[in-house]
Computed example of a mutant assay.
Amino acid sequence: MGSYTIRSAQPEDRDALATLIRDSTNAYYQNKFGTGIFPPTEMHTRDFVDLYNQLDGSEALLCVDEDGAIGGSCFMHRRETHFSLGIMNVSSDHFGQGIARQLLTEIIFQAEAAGLPLRLVSSCMNLDSYSLYTRAGLKPFEFYQDLLVDVPEAGLPNADGGIAVRSGTLADVEAIAKLELEISGISRRTDYTHFITNPDGLWHLSVAEEDGNITGYLASGSSQACNMIGPGASRTEEAAIALIDAELDRHRGRTPVLLLPGRFNRAVQHVYGLGGRNCETHVAQCLGEAFRPNGITMPTFLPESG
């Protein structure tokens, strides 16, 4: 087993890190499903690197060998209430060297030093990573169905459920933070602000209102690396459905993916009714006290949101 050290990614690591994410992710999906998910000659995964460089409290950790070659990487994000662990990748040239475990150990150290729980969303289909996290003590607390939806070019049918949905504004950030804290025990003001201000032209955030109060929010991203509905949280399935319809309609002609908690059957059945189809399953895990969500949570992979 070789000798590796961990350091923070620097601006000059951008292309090497993006290449590692693309190639190692494609290698996993090629082995598992017979096809990669990123174009092998494009650098769409720069979007991961660029977003984490913009968000306060976020960074990529690199595991490098004695020659400075990057053997693995992991994104992490310190928020007000918790640490989140994002996408982790290990180069095929460095398999079997304990790199993922070394990166996880470092992030656990930082979270525990800050006195904050560590949260993540991991694939139920990747048992190697699931075992890595559970062996480290992370406990599952929510199960998600990954649903792909082909949004028609003409948009979704207009279904008025009686819940008003509008674009979020910066004036909504504190109300969104309070809402998500009550629903899932977490808050991430920097993320909400980024989605609303949309400096890179990839994001949108909607809020649902009932009786003048925000009862749910849902963001979505149209990055080439991750076309996804979320993150979001809502008190009720009715609010979640209204938000899902509004954000899906913004992705006309595209096929975004949405994560829904499997225990909320009405919302799941609604997405099935829109043509949604299952493509994977994920589980939310936590090291430290896990707050069992008392509403609907909809996580994403970019940025990660456990």
Rank of each mutant, 00 (worst) to 15 (best):
T5R: 14
R7C: 11
Q10D: 12
P11W: 06
R22C: 09
T25M: 10
Y28M: 08
K32H: 14
K32P: 03
F33K: 13
T35W: 02
T35H: 14
R46V: 11
D47R: 05
V49I: 02
V49S: 01
D50T: 08
N53M: 11
D56H: 14
E59C: 08
D67I: 12
S73D: 01
S73E: 10
C74W: 07
F75T: 02
F75Y: 14
E80H: 05
F83Q: 03
G86K: 00
N89H: 13
S92Y: 02
Q97Y: 11
I99A: 08
L104G: 07
E106F: 12
E106P: 06
E112M: 11
A113K: 15
R119N: 11
R119P: 01
L120W: 00
V121E: 15
L127V: 12
L127A: 10
R135Y: 11
L138P: 04
P140L: 03
Y144C: 02
Y144A: 06
L147G: 01
L147W: 01
L147I: 13
V149E: 01
E153A: 14
L156W: 04
N158D: 15
A159R: 12
G162F: 06
I163V: 15
T169S: 13
A177R: 07
L181R: 15
T190Y: 01
T190F: 06
F195L: 09
I196P: 09
P199T: 01
D200H: 11
L205F: 05
S206P: 00
V207K: 01
A208F: 09
A208P: 08
A208S: 14
E209Y: 10
D211H: 13
L218W: 07
A225Q: 02
P231H: 01
A233Y: 13
E238F: 02
H251T: 08
R252P: 02
T255N: 11
P256Q: 01
V257K: 09
L260N: 00
P261Q: 04
G262Q: 09
N265M: 07
A267C: 12
Y272L: 06
N278C: 11
Q285H: 06
R292F: 00
T297A: 09
F301R: 06
